[in-house]
Design a protein around this nucleic acid. Structure first.
Lengths: 111, 111
DNA sequence: GAGTCGTAGTCTACTTTGCATACTTCGAAG
DNA sequence: CTTCGAAGTATGCAAAGTAGACTACGACTC
């Protein structure tokens, strides 16, 4: 089973953060706002596709909900059990490596 | 200023963890043991080179310390202030994204 | 003292991931 | 029926990660 790497990990986490309202654009905004990282559509969708191939996320096209202003049906994103497991596993690794260093990764003494 | 991504980040953290005794092979072993990731020499040195170019680490060749069994002089690795800052910054991002989710990233309520 | 063994480091080609740009689709506004 | 904006798609290149073979060199063995 493949691992998630940094951007993929952030995307998964961002999807989880949006809960019920996980649409690509929200995820994108969340990432731009909170991950100090420029995120273009192409980059995001490419990553979503790859995560889907790996079985870490899935989505369904929003059928009924009418978007206010045209366009394609929106993807409602969802993280699979595998995706969750991968994120958790990577989180534990990070936690382990940040532990004991005076850095922000596993804050508690934080800042 | 470029950002550190996942493997680079782990390498920096691993170097810090070794403290005074940061040699490539120790770092490699640490990563293999604790990051659930296969690390070949090529992969590691390639990354070390890149980190050095970015100014995140530096090294000096061990001059006097005789290795028990031949080979090139060993690199003693060191993380620069920039490297530290980059790792810290990325740590904070990760912390932010893991916060509130029931995952391992910023444990405290954890597990 | 030449051959081989093991450790440390280097080189190079290949794959995967990340990123940007340009393009398509479709509904509403005008 | 043209334009605009929102959502998604396609394509190509650049950067990072990975593997495997190669070099260098001290010590050990004969």
């Amino acid at each position: 089973m493949p691992k998630v790497r940094d951007f993929e990990l952030l995307v998964i986490l961002a999807i989880l953060r949006q809960g019920d309202q996980s649409y690509a654009n929200r995820v994108r905004e969340d990432l731009e706002a909170n991950a100090e990282r420029r995120v273009t559509r192409g980059a995001l969708y490419r990553t979503l596709d790859r995560l889907e191939v790996k079985g870490f996320i899935r989505w369904e096209l929003e059928p009924s909900e009418v978007p206010e202003r045209g366009g394609h049906p929106m993807r409602r994103l969802e993280v699979t059990a595998d995706g969750l497991a991968a994120a958790r596993s990577q989180g534990l690794v990070l936690q382990r490596f940040f532990a004991g260093l005076e850095l922000g990764g596993t804050g508690r003494s934080g800042e």
